[in-house]
Nucleic acid binder design. Structure first.
Length: 424
RNA sequence: GCGGGCGUCGCCAAGUGGUUAAGGCAGCGGCUUGUGGCGCCGCUAUACGGGGGUUCGAAUCCCCUCGCUCGCCCCA
């Protein structure tokens, strides 16, 4: 036997058994977006590396060490998209969509990050995301969050926590960052080693340290809230009031810092306690500077992304929906040269009439075929042997009924019987 | 990139140095050459992730390697 091949690390197959769950998820999301007046956009999986470098930020982990990047045959620097927002913004700019007014868009599909796989994290993973472009109102943040929240509720998920924070404007954050770094440098000796490393690479992250000693120390650190302008404060309170008015529960988390550079003002995460270490199901926020940074007109925007693998883990735990695809309506048992040819034609006609029909192609003994018919889960079997083929009739057998007798019917009558309108 | 755990048939799983490596499920064949669900019998070509070593002898011990998995970092 030849050596077997495997999918690449972190690239998983979704087998037929799991597909019903995924399709359910996608259907619920589509319906949610339809109701919310959000249109779908599809962008390429492959983009110029520069798009992500400029959009997400050179210094972030996503860009610095997690991208699937390579040179194509024309020596162009290409990257498999690690997230959706940058591509959507690029497309919106490229096609001047903002000239038509604000854009309410959603996207879905695979994303790629070169990370060590673990629970709820793959190298190829799937996101569904929302972007509201051209709307700067605090109400847009609230609406975006509400759409995500309602989508998760429509999936039957509860025990979710919405965490909320504000990052202020870029200037607010830069001012605070400098202040925080000064303070951290003064207390360098007291920090845990992990946090010490982050003082210069990602100082805001230190606030989120899991080390108890560091957390205690941080009580005396400068607060992001104090560095915010009055306008930023005002804006954040409008977001909070909006959520309260919609009765969407949330928790203020001053340590919540989004990793990507483009965020400003509202930042939020929806987490579950049933996922292990990778608890974030949905993450998002406002990114008012991104469109301009990518060469478009200054445009406020807010959005989020949902991680589908994590949702699937939660749905599978809850057994919210059946995981199997439905059985066929009719199983065609057939044997004999003339019968087999006729069965193929009949199967096609029944399918054209809208029935889900499985044709037994084994040519095996009737007994075997009935066994398979039974296991297929089909409620009915059509039996076609050479005598039926000669007479132009089909034996219709009720596989599930108590006293279901076999009936000899014209093939045209089969669809009627299955539809519950027997015609004798 | 760094830690921990694990790798026996398609799936679950016994076996921890010694004649032919249990068992269950699934699959296939037969009992039953045109009627299934139950039952019985049999099969899945020497299957212990791969390579090397120790030993009279290894799935069982050692080394290396690959893979999976959980966690760190980071993120959805």
């Amino acid at each position: 036997m030849a050596e077997t091949l495997q999918s690449l690390r972190g690239m998983v197959d979704l087998l037929p058994e799991q597909i019903a769950l995924w399709q359910h998820l996608e259907a619920v999301a589509r319906e949610q977006f339809r109701r919310a007046g959000v249109r779908e956009i599809r962008t390429p999986l492959l983009e110029a590396t520069e798009l992500f470098a400029r959009g997400i930020g050179e210094a972030t982990d996503v860009v610095g060490k997690e991208m699937y990047s390579f040179l194509d045959r024309g020596e162009r620097a290409c990257t498999l998209r690690p997230e959706g927002t940058a591509s959507v913004v690029r497309a919106v700019i490229q096609h001047s969509l903002l000239g038509q007014g604000p854009q309410r868009l959603w996207y879905g599909g695979p994303m790629f990050r070169y990370e060590r796989p673990q629970k709820g994290r793959q190298r190829q993973f799937h996101q569904i995301g929302l972007e509201l472009l051209g709307i700067g109102e605090a109400r847009a943040d609230v609406e975006a969050i509400a759409i995500a929240w309602d989508l998760l509720e429509a999936l039957g998920l509860d025990e979710l926590t919405l965490e909320l924070n504000t990052l202020g404007t870029g200037e607010d954050r830069a001012r605070y960052r400098a202040e925080l770094v000064r303070w951290l440098e003064a207390h360098l000796e007291e920090l845990d080693p992990d946090s010490r490393n982050r003082v210069h690479t990602n100082p805001l992250r230190v606030l989120d340290s899991k080390d108890a000693g560091t957390q205690a120390l941080l009580a005396g650190a400068p607060q992001l809230g104090d560095a915010l302008s009055g306008e930023s404060h005002e804006r954040f309170s409008r977001v909070r009031q909006g959520l309260e008015a919609l009765e969407i529960p949330f928790r203020i988390n001053p340590c919540l810092v989004r990793g990507l550079d483009y965020y400003s003002h509202t930042a939020f995460e929806i987490t579950s306690t049933h996922l292990g270490a990778q608890a974030t199901v949905c993450g998002g926020g406002r990114y008012d500077g991104l469109v301009e940074q990518l060469g478009g007109p200054a445009t406020p925007a807010v959005g989020w992304a949902l991680g589908l693998e994590r949702l699937v883990l939660l749905l599978a735990q809850r057994q919210t929906i059946p995981a199997n695809s439905p059985p066929p309506d009719l199983y065609v048992v057939n044997r004999g040269e003339a019968a087999e040819a006729w069965a193929l034609a009949l199967t096609r006609n029944w399918r054209l009439a809208g029935l889900a029909v499985e044709l037994d192609l084994s040519g095996a003994a009737f007994g075997k075929q009935f066994k398979r018919a039974d296991r297929s889960g089909a409620p009915w079997a059509a039996v076609i042997g050479d005598s039926e083929a000669a007479e132009g009739v089909v034996v219709l057998k009720d596989l599930r009924g108590e006293a279901g007798e076999d009936r000899r019917l014209k093939p045209e009558a089969v669809a009627e019987v299955l539809a519950g309108r027997p015609q004798l």
